[in-house]
Nucleic acid binder design. Structure first.
Length: 257
DNA sequence: ATGACCCTAGTTTAGGGA
């Protein structure tokens, strides 16, 4: 059973790409981020015709998350994170699918740092940490899949020295990601590939993909109940080389049924 | 250090992304 996170950078512009990928890979559960579409403009019928049940939380122009399930309907449990009633950004959706709890998340970018956007990022991660505490220790299987906008370590970026002051790599952010992980989450890709250079994002600028000047910022965190079932993890890197690609590539785990 | 590119909104240039 394959679970994937994929920042598609605009579902309007990326729909042909997304449908091709769904057809070729037939992933079981897909978490999408950056829909960049209001609720009513989500291409629900195209997704359903491809064989997927779906829930989504749209937003005009920016953000937006969705959970797709092949041959079944995700059952929504949470829409948004508690802790800030004034936060209207669509960045968190949680559902149960085929016995799994799936948190689909899109952490704020946070640049420029320091500044209000960076403060919002740090606060958002704290709200996430509060929300996930009980999930980490749950005996039920839970996966937190998404675009974390966090480069966890120097191994996860092509030139770490260039990123030390960036909101994706600043120590406050890495420290917060560490505290989240310390609740009992397993970073699937890094656990199965401890030394490998693996990226999930390549800038549109400067031929970043061709040069493999990438970042690893899309992660699947597994609680102990899922960790026991983990058999493989990777990135559909070739999708980044398709025509009109997103700047991110689908990032996945394979679980025993 | 800078700017390179892409998406959206909605009319043409600006904001956001990372």
């Amino acid at each position: 059973m394959r679970i994937v996170t994929y920042n598609i950078n605009g579902i309007g512009a990326r729909l042909p790409n997304l449908l091709r990928w769904l057809g070729e890979k037939a992933p079981d559960i897909v978490c999408l981020q950056e829909l960049k579409a209001p609720q009513e403009k989500f291409p629900e019928s195209a997704i359903r015709e491809a064989g997927y049940g779906v829930i989504w939380h749209g937003q005009k122009s920016w953000n937006g998350v969705a959970i797709l399930a092949r041959g079944s309907e995700p059952v929504e449990v949470h829409r948004g994170l508690a802790g800030d009633t004034e936060d209207l950004q669509s960045r968190y959706l949680q559902a149960t699918v085929r016995g799994l709890t799936i948190g689909c998340l899109y952490v704020p970018n946070g640049n420029p740092a320091p500044g209000p956007k960076f403060d919002y990022k740090l606060r958002w991660i704290e709200r996430l940490i509060t929300h996930t505490a009980v999930l980490a220790s749950s005996r039920e299987p839970v996966i937190l899949a998404g675009d974390y906008n966090v480069i966890p370590t120097e191994r996860d970026v092509y030139k770490p020295e260039r990123w030390v002051n960036d909101a994706l790599f600043r120590v406050e952010v890495r420290e917060a990601f560490q505290r989240l992980s310390a609740q009992g989450w397993t970073d699937a890709i890094r656990t199965l590939h401890p030394e490998a250079t693996i990226y999930t994002f390549w800038d549109f600028f400067r031929d970043a993909y061709k040069r493999n000047a990438g970042l690893r910022i899309d992660h699947l965190l597994l609680n102990a109940a899922v960790r026991a079932r983990l058999v493989a993890a990777g990135v559909d890197r070739d999708v980044r080389g398709w025509e009109k690609p997103s700047d991110h590539a689908p990032t996945w785990v394979e679980l025993e049924e």
